[in-house]
Structures are given as C-alpha cells and as structure tokens.
C-alpha cells in the first residue's frame, strides 16, 4: 500500500479525500530507496575509463596543494634520505619513433644509456609503449645493480613511451622522487618542416 506521507500529499493536492484504492501504484512498494537523489548519492561515481574523466579529482587535489610542487626549500628537502639536489637524474627522451633513457648523476654526467633500439626492438616496434616499458625495466635493473636507489625523472617530448617508461622505471624497483617535464616548447620557433600531405 501507499506510504502515509504520499497519501497525505495527494489529499492535500486535490483538496478532498481520495480513496487510496483508486490509485494503483506498484513501483513505489518495490523501490528500496524512495528518494532518487539519495539513491544516486549513495552510488559510486561512474568511471568511464578514459583519461581526463577523473579530472575533477585532480583539480580538487591541486586546490589543496598537498605538498605536490617544489618550493624554495626543495633542493635541501630529503627524499629517501638524500637531499633533492643530490638525487641522480633519469632523462627520458620520447619521440614518436623511439624512446631513449639516460641515467646521469646529480651533476648531469651520463652513466647509463638505453634505448628501445639497443634493447632489440627494431623499426616500428621501437615506437611502442611496450618497448619503452621493457627498456625502462632493463635500465632500472642495471641501475639498481650499480647502487642507484632513488632517481628523479625528466621527460622530454610526446610519444607512446611517455607514460609507460616512467611506469617501467617504477616497476624495476627504483624510487622515483619527482617527475619533471622538459619538453621544448617555443611560442616563436624557427620555421618548422613543411606539413605532411594527407
């Protein structure tokens, strides 16, 4: 039968008594939560599975400024027991056709270098995210053997290996202190090459 609140509402609406037998409602009885808004609020937010869908989360995180960005004390801040300025650097150069990883010490002197081509991926296979990840894992293991534990990552360029190489470095067991973007962007560049014909 109808909940009493609803009966009262209908009575008030019509201004006279409505016999509840005349109204046939079956849906109300079977619904668990009466208020649709309450039900929707209790449901988890739908995840549509694409990048940028959870952008609201990131924006709120940015608003909190939860210790995410460098400040004036950063060079002396300790990461895994090492001051930030003394952590070795891993430079990653990403291009559409290849990914090159170069591990340097804190001053920038190169120590290890690996690329997808060196790793054994040839031709178009070099420019895949799988190749980048495999390369990153192999350089990471090599670095661990040589005693590097913590690194800061500096990425340059856009390509399929951008995310996966960082992921590979983490999977190899290295601690990543920070991620820096070092892509060269100019607002008044010299004239680039002519556009490709479609």
């Amino acid at each position: 039968m109808l909940p009493p609140r609803l009966c009262f509402g209908i009575e008030r609406l019509c201004g006279f008594y409505v016999n509840k037998l005349f109204i046939t409602t079956t849906a109300v009885k079977f619904r668990e939560v009466e208020d649709r808004r309450l039900m929707l609020r209790s449901l988890p937010a739908p995840d549509e599975g694409t990048a940028g869908e959870k952008a609201v989360d990131i924006d709120s995180q940015l608003a909190q400024k939860a210790d995410l960005f460098p400040d004036i004390d950063t060079p002396t801040k300790l990461f895994y027991g090492i001051p930030f300025k003394d952590i070795p650097i891993c430079n990653i150069k990403v291009s559409p056709n290849n990914t090159i990883l170069c591990l340097t010490d804190a001053k920038g002197v190169p120590k290890l270098l690996r690329s997808c081509g060196v790793e054994g991926f040839k031709h178009t296979k070099k420019g895949t995210n799988i190749a980048a990840q495999a390369t990153a894992i192999s350089i990471g293991l090599q670095a661990l053997e040589q005693g590097y534990k913590t690194i800061r990552v500096r990425v340059r360029g856009l390509g399929p290996g951008r995310m996966s190489s960082i992921k590979g470095l983490q999977m190899s067991g290295l601690n990543i202190a920070s991620i820096t973007d070092n892509t060269r962007v100019s607002w008044d560049p010299p004239r680039p090459r002519k556009a490709k014909k479609l």
Partner: peptide, 27 residues
C-alpha cells in the same frame, strides 16, 4: 621557456604513486 631545472614543471611523487603524479603534470 627556459626555467630553473627541477623547479618548473615538476611534480613530486607521493606514496610511490607515479600514475597520479603523471596525471597532475599532464593536466
């Protein structure tokens, strides 16, 4: 766009959560 290295366009990784740091940077 030349800035001091490791100050500009840098995000710290918190709790070894690389993915969210990347997301913040890309965003």
């Amino acid at each position: 766009m030349r800035h001091v290295a490791f100050i500009a366009r840098t995000v710290f990784v918190q709790n070894n959560d690389v993915e969210s740091a990347c997301k913040v940077l890309n965003r």
